[in-house]
C-alpha cells in the first residue's frame, strides 16, 4: 500500500499538524511501514464478526442530574495561554456560528 503526497497533505490538514516537506516524506515512509504491519488483519476471515469497541462489553453508566461544579474559571484560566475578560482568546475566527 503506498501513500501519495496529496494523501499525507490531506491527513496532516485533518490532524492540524504543520509538516514541512522532509517531515511529509518521512511520514509517508513510516505510515507505509505500518500499513505493512496492518496486512496481518487480512489474514483473518472476519465475515459476520461484529466489531468490539469496548473490552468486556460494558454498558454506559449514568450519573444523576445534579450540579456539582461551581465557577472555577480563575484556576483554569491561570494556566491558559491567552485570556481577557474571562474569555479564552484565539486569532480572529472568520465566521461565527
Amino acid at each position: 500500500m503506498s501513500i501519495s503526497p496529496e494523501t499525507i497533505q490531506h491527513i496532516a490538514k485533518l490532524a492540524r499538524l504543520g509538516l514541512n516537506t522532509a517531515q511529509k516524506a518521512a511520514a509517508i515512509t513510516q505510515l507505509e511501514q505500518m500499513l505493512g504491519v496492518f496486512d496481518a488483519l487480512n489474514t483473518i476471515d472476519v465475515t459476520g464478526v461484529a466489531p468490539l469497541f469496548h473490552p468486556g462489553e460494558l454498558a454506559l453508566t449514568l450519573r444523576p442530574d445534579v450540579v456539582t461544579e461551581g465557577d472555577q474559571h480563575a484556576a483554569f484560566q491561570a494556566i491558559a495561554p491567552d485570556v481577557s475578560g474571562q474569555m479564552y482568546l484565539v486569532p480572529k475566527v472568520l465566521e461565527a456560528v
Binding site: 464478526v49 461484529a50 468490539l52
Partner: peptide, 14 residues
C-alpha cells in the same frame, strides 16, 4: 478496511 476490520479482529482475539 482498517479501523472497523481491526475492531472485528479484536472481537476474535477476545
Amino acid at each position: 478496511a482498517y479501523y472497523l476490520r481491526a475492531q472485528r479482529v479484536r472481537r476474535l482475539i477476545a
